[in-house]
Design a protein around this nucleic acid. Structure first.
Length: 302
DNA sequence: CACCAGGGACTAC
DNA sequence: GTAGTCCATGGT
């Protein structure tokens, strides 16, 4: 990763096939999102490292991402962590050339790759955030899922205010490990989801589940099995988290309803494709299932 | 009012 | 292993 440190700002070199505006479209998909704000072409995100809050104002230049710090100037050590966070958030380490070459020969992906050229996998560097968001999203419509996430963040997350706007941090697993099922039930989480989320928080608080250990697993299936052994994490959630937080390119939530709807639309069919049909279609996507899924999700927001 | 929603656990066979 | 059932609640 290449980045330059200007002390009061940082700049991260962007790879080929990167389009900041495309990424902002995806990040702006919900009005209820409270973990970042988009205003006038800039992306605002609150982060915290070692008790140090940092508000980032993120914009783009021709070949780089430029980050200013409107609230306080972070230390050098923190500036490096911010660069790493952004690197992960926008999946900047990945060379997309093979994906676009593959997409060029795929009738479904070809128009999407052209239309959303430069869109990167928008990740979730925080493993706990990815897990909770996935559990929240199980079997409910996205609008309600965002409502639940907003309540969750605003009840248990820390905040900073800048120019009359409030910026939120996702709650920590330490905090959630200590709450009761009843507390989440009051926010209209189901009892089951409350148990899953608190259970996951306790595993992480106890050091039994870490992003580092998951990343150390040998292969896709081993990692997926490890995740699926946790109560509340099935095949869909495991793939979702591997895709968004572990940057696994072969993660493929094949049972995803959004994926089914996107394929139905792209294929111009009256019905959604079956799992067997999707398996067949996806044989072309080998090695890039996560990106294929992500671009299909993106197509739902036009 | 019916059906759906970015599923998963649990049970029975 | 897999098919059936329940979970629970808002959106459309």
């Amino acid at each position: 990763m290449k980045w330059s440190d200007g002390e009061s700002y940082i700049e991260i070199d962007t790879p080929l096939a990167f389009n900041f505006a495309q990424c902002l479209v995806f990040l702006g998909r919900s009005e209820q999102e409270n973990l970042h704000r988009i205003n006038d072409g800039y992306l605002y995100k609150l982060l915290k490292f070692d008790e140090e809050f940092v508000l980032c104002k993120i914009g783009c230049k021709p070949n780089s991402i430029h980050i200013d710090f409107p609230l306080t100037s972070p230390s050098k050590d923190t500036r490096e962590k911010i660069a790493v966070y952004l690197w992960e958030w926008f999946d900047l380490h990945r060379n997309l050339s093979p994906f676009y070459e593959m997409a060029q020969k795929d009738t479904i992906l070809q128009p999407l790759a052209q239309k959303y050229d430069g869109l990167r996998m928008i990740g979730m560097p925080d493993l706990f955030e990815a897990l909770v968001w996935a559990v929240i999203g199980q079997q409910i419509n996205l609008t309600f899922a965002y409502t639940l996430k907003r309540r969750f963040v605003e009840h248990f997350g820390e905040r900073q205010t800048f120019e009359r706007e409030t910026y939120w941090l996702f709650p920590t697993y330490e905090k959630i490990a200590a709450i009761s099922v009843d507390t989440l039930r009051q926010l209209q989480f189901t009892a089951r989801k409350s148990e899953y989320i608190i259970g996951i928080a306790k595993l992480m608080a106890g050091g039994e589940l870490t992003k580092e250990s998951l990343l150390q697993k040998e292969d896709y299936l081993h990692t997926k099995r490890t995740l699926m052994a946790i109560r509340g994490i099935g095949a869909w959630t495991a793939d979702y988290v591997m895709m968004k937080s572990l940057h696994c390119p072969t993660a493929f939530p094949i049972a995803d309803v959004g994926l089914h709807n996107a394929l139905k639309i792209q294929l111009g069919q009256e019905r959604k494709p079956t799992i067997e049909e999707i398996t067949q279609i996806a044989t072309h996507w080998k090695g890039w299932q996560a990106y294929a899924t992500f671009y299909l999700w993106r197509s739902l927001y036009d």
